[in-house]
Nucleic acid binder design. Structure first.
Length: 493
RNA sequence: GGCAUUGUGGCCGAGUGGCUAGGCAGAGCUCUGCAAAAGCUUGUACAGCGGUUCGAAUCCGCUCGAUGCCUCCA
């Protein structure tokens, strides 16, 4: 498939702070790296929003015809729990708490992560590398940075020398920080550090005796610093310079800043052309934190087993809810917001169900061609899914009007409408239509059609007691009947 | 405290220097045996205070609030 012509895509680049026209390094191909989760506990909802934003972006690139290599890592080692001085691998700490092998924890939560993402209908990335699977690559990078003079070894640990780096490069350009400010604002409370400067960050940490996850290196047994894995894996699979690097806003500093520093120290040039940052998700206007109880797990939403929401919501509804906000905006999740999204989502899906049945006429009373372009315009403007959705609802309105024969659509336009709607709703936004995915619904459909027929006869005989009985009892079972001009339709909830 | 982002009608959320998305909720109407659904009509919101401008909610400054980062974090 060729990349669609006439589609100028603009992307907000966090590095420049501007929307820029997107131009891939290799025409028709895109290399994209997104920082994945640390698998030491269940993925929480905020995580999901970030990955969902990039899933949507991945999907849109594919829809446009790009060949995308999408790398999203699994962090299964390397993050420090405490201050760097007494660093303990986060994974290892959790393991001791739960009396499990570290890799057992990793396995459990990796499975949980994949499980949730599948429910949300994520497309799998092209490559999902793990940090522990790339220790050798990380060690090589550390060696290289030392050789180039931007890192120093001390007591079996290796630190990146930010000051030296800043003399020839610009540390802080992504996050808008100045090294001088950072130095003057550093808290002096921290215990004596072996680092030359507080801003220096660990590339390699010496493993103390009790440390379970450890690997041999030229500096003794230890483990990699947490910024290193992304540099190692992105470079390995996407090259020294690649198109897009994404992640959550909270990773901008220090993580992404350090990645830039590491890559520039090694290769002398910037690793990424476009930096994208997805914004945070809040719950009832407050940040999510387990400590305050203001937190909810994806599965708790799907099952309804939580104290925050009034009912269960399907993954597709949650996905639709998230897609109604721009990925760079803070989004607040609440019961009212989900309730509203659920209704909107149902309305959209019902319109799609009605698409086939629309009568095709000679001409159209609506410019579907222009509408289609508006959908692309929305996505081409920094993946503006909320605008896209507003355009989709324009189509919903048209569908309902055409159904009532208040407006008309031509055969050709019906095809455009159908293709465009399906592409954007299912391929790009990644929503699923629960009405169609219901297995065994054919039998149910037949039974309900029969009841509709019986009810119709009753109504014609003015036997409203019987017709209402059918309608009310079906309603109790969650099957809603709707009388329209061209007959009765139903909807299973 | 520093840096960054942000504050939109009852709720959620786009967007723009003047032509004011969308969804949900509300009101009225049409349709209907009744209801639901659907359709139509209806809301002049943009934290506060100043400034720039012919004109700002949109640009600038200050104040207040929120969120993120500065320490593991999407």
């Amino acid at each position: 498939m060729q990349v669609s012509e006439n589609q100028t895509l603009k992307i907000y680049n966090s590095l420049s702070g501007k929307k820029e026209i997107f131009k891939p390094i290799n025409e028709g191909h895109i290399g994209m790296y997104v920082c994945g989760p640390t698998v030491y506990s269940n993925v929480h909802l905020g995580n999901c929003r970030t990955f969902m934003s990039f899933d949507m972006i991945f999907r849109y690139f594919k829809h446009l015809g790009y060949k995308v290599r999408y790398v999203r890592n699994i962090t299964d080692a390397g993050h420090l729990v405490d201050d760097a001085d007494e660093g303990e691998d986060k994974i290892a700490k959790k393991a001791r708490l739960e009396q499990l092998e570290p890799m057992e924890v990793v396995q459990r939560y990796t499975i949980d992560f994949h499980n949730i993402l599948e429910k949300f209908n994520f497309l799998p990335p092209s490559i999902e590398p793990t940090a522990t699977g790339h220790i050798i690559e990380q060690i090589e990078i550390v060696k290289d940075i030392i050789k180039k003079g931007f890192a120093y070894e001390i007591n079996g640990s290796v630190y990146f020398d930010v000051n030296t780096f800043n003399e020839s490069h610009e540390y802080g350009k992504l996050s808008g920080r100045k090294l001088e400010d950072m130095i003057s604002n550093t808290r002096e409370l921290a215990a004596q550090s072996e680092k030359r400067n507080p801003q220096d960050f660990a590339l390699w940490k010496k493993a103390e005796a009790e440390h379970i996850m450890r690997w041999p290196s030229p500096w003794g047994d230890g483990f990699p610093g947490w910024h290193l894995e992304c540099t190692a894996m992105s470079t390995k699979y996407l090259g020294e310079t690649f198109d897009i690097h994404g992640g959550g806003m909270d990773l901008k500093f220090p993580h992404h800043e350090c990645e830039i520093a590491q890559a520039e120290a090694c290769n002398g040039h910037s690793p990424v052309n476009y930096w994208l940052h997805a914004n945070m998700l809040t719950l009832n206007g407050k940040k999510m934190a387990k400590s305050t109880g203001n937190s909810i797990l994806p599965n708790e939403i799907f099952t309804g087993e939580n104290t925050i929401l009034s009912k269960a919501f399907s993954p597709s509804v949650v996905r639709f809810f998230m897609m109604q906000a721009h990925y760079t905006s803070i989004l607040d999740i609440s019961n009212d917001a989900l309730l509203a999204s659920e209704k909107g989502y149902n309305k959209l899906m019902e319109a799609i169900d009605n698409l086939e049945k629309l009568p095709a006429k000679e001409t159209s009373s609506f410019n579907f061609k222009a509408w289609q372009q508006h959908c692309y315009d929305a996505m081409n403007d920094d993946f503006n899914s909320p605008i896209l959705i507003s355009k989709l609802f324009e189509a919903v309105k048209q569908i309902n009007l055409i159904k009532e024969e208040k407006e008309s659509i031509s055969k050709a336009d019906k095809d455009i409408l159908k293709t465009t709607l399906h592409s954007f709703v299912f391929d790009v936004l990644g929503l699923e239509n629960k009405n169609n995915s219901n297995d065994g619904s054919n039998k149910l459909e037949g039974v309900v059609e029969l009841l509709i027929e019986l009810r119709k006869e009753a109504r014609e005989n003015k036997d409203f007691a019987t017709s209402d009985k059918i309608r009310n009892q079906l309603a109790e079972m969650g099957i809603e009947l709707k009388d329209g001009k061209e007959g009765t339709t139903f909807n299973v909830s």
